[in-house]
C-alpha cells in the first residue's frame, strides 16, 4: 500500500505537476495573439532588422508553447488524455507538412517561374508554429466535442 502511494506521488510529481498553472494559459493566449499580430506587422516593416523579426517569432512560439503546456481550469484524466492525443496528431500532421509543403511550394514555383524555381525547406518557425497551431486546435476541438 505504501509502495502504491509512493508510485502515485511519483506520477503526480512527474506528470501532473510538470504542467504550468492555469493562469499561464490565459497569459499565453494574450501573448501569442499580440506577438503574432506584431509578427505580421513586422513583415511589412522593411526598416526592421532581421533579428527583430526573429525575436518576435520566438515570442510567438514560446507563448503558444505556454498555452500548450498549461493546465486546464479543471485538469483531470480526460484533459490529459485529450492533450496526449492532440500532441500525437500534431506530430504526425506536422511531419507530413514539413515533408510535403516544400514539394508543393516547389511544384507551384516551377509552374510559375520554370527552371528558375528553387527548392526551399520550411523555416523552423513555420514548422513549429504549424505544429503548435494544430495541437492547440485539435485539443480545443476535442475538448468541445466531449463537452
Amino acid at each position: 500500500m505504501e509502495f502504491n502511494k509512493m508510485m502515485e506521488r511519483e506520477y503526480d510529481e512527474l506528470i501532473k505537476e510538470r504542467l504550468l498553472p492555469h493562469r499561464f494559459k490565459l497569459l499565453g493566449i494574450y501573448l501569442s495573439i499580440g506577438s503574432f499580430a506584431l509578427y505580421i506587422v513586422s513583415l511589412f516593416m522593411a526598416e526592421l532588422p532581421d533579428y527583430g523579426r526573429h525575436m518576435i517569432s520566438k515570442v510567438v512560439l514560446l507563448s503558444m508553447l505556454m498555452v500548450s503546456i498549461s493546465k486546464e481550469k479543471q485538469e483531470d484524466e480526460m484533459s490529459r488524455s485529450l492533450r496526449s492525443q492532440s500532441y500525437m496528431l500534431a506530430l504526425v500532421i506536422g511531419v507530413l507538412y514539413a515533408v510535403f509543403q516544400p514539394i508543393i511550394n516547389f511544384g507551384v514555383a516551377a509552374m510559375v517561374q520554370g527552371s528558375e524555381a528553387s527548392f526551399e525547406e520550411l523555416p523552423v518557425f513555420a514548422t513549429f508554429w504549424f505544429m503548435l497551431f494544430v495541437q492547440l486546435g485539435f485539443f480545443h476541438v476535442m475538448k468541445k466535442g466531449s463537452a
Binding site: K73, Q74, D76, E77, M78, S81, K143, G145, S146
Partner: peptide, 24 residues
C-alpha cells in the same frame, strides 16, 4: 464531477460513451 474530482465535461463525455474512464 465535484465528488470524484473531475470536470463536468468528463462526466458528460463518459455518459455519452465518448470517453472510457480509467480504473481509478
Amino acid at each position: 464531477a465535484k465528488k470524484i474530482g473531475v470536470s463536468r465535461q468528463t462526466i458528460n463525455a463518459i455518459e455519452k460513451n465518448r470517453y472510457v474512464p480509467s480504473t481509478v
